[in-house]
Amino acid sequence: MNQWLIGAAVAFVVLAATTAVLTREPARQAVVLSVLGLGLAVLFAVLQAPDVALSQLAVGTALTPLLILLTVRKVTRRPTRPDDHPATGDDGQDQK
């Protein structure tokens, strides 16, 4: 019975990994990576490795996506010129 559970989890992980690689836009990839992280955690749990599953849960659902999203945020910000500044309190304006 557990074999089936493992099979389903492996299939899910393979699907999620493939999707994560084929999702080329980093912010979207971060979402899929967190899905992959959850899938891996479930797989590790059914492979009787709760310790590793806990680690994967911690790293995969919170840490790695947060790091990637912070980087994406920093990186996709274009150089701001005064003229394309919306008045919502943005980057360049509050420089002293």
């Binding site: 912010a27 971060a30 979402v31 967190s34 955690a41 749990a45 709760p50 599953a53 806990l54 849960l57 911690a58 659902t61 919170a62 996506p65 947060l66 999203l69 912070l70 994406v72 945020r73 910000r77 274009r78 701001t80 919306p86 919502t88 309190g89 943005d90």
Partner: peptide, 30 residues
């Protein structure tokens, strides 16, 4: 059961992170 406990405290944090960065334009109006 520790797994469920861990997920219970981390999942909301993860969701909030995504809500802030992926969908929210709260302080990034480009």
């Amino acid at each position: 059961q520790d797994l469920a406990l861990m997920l219970a405290v981390l999942a909301p944090a993860g969701t909030l992170v995504f809500a802030r960065f992926v969908t929210g334009h709260r302080h990034d109006a480009h």
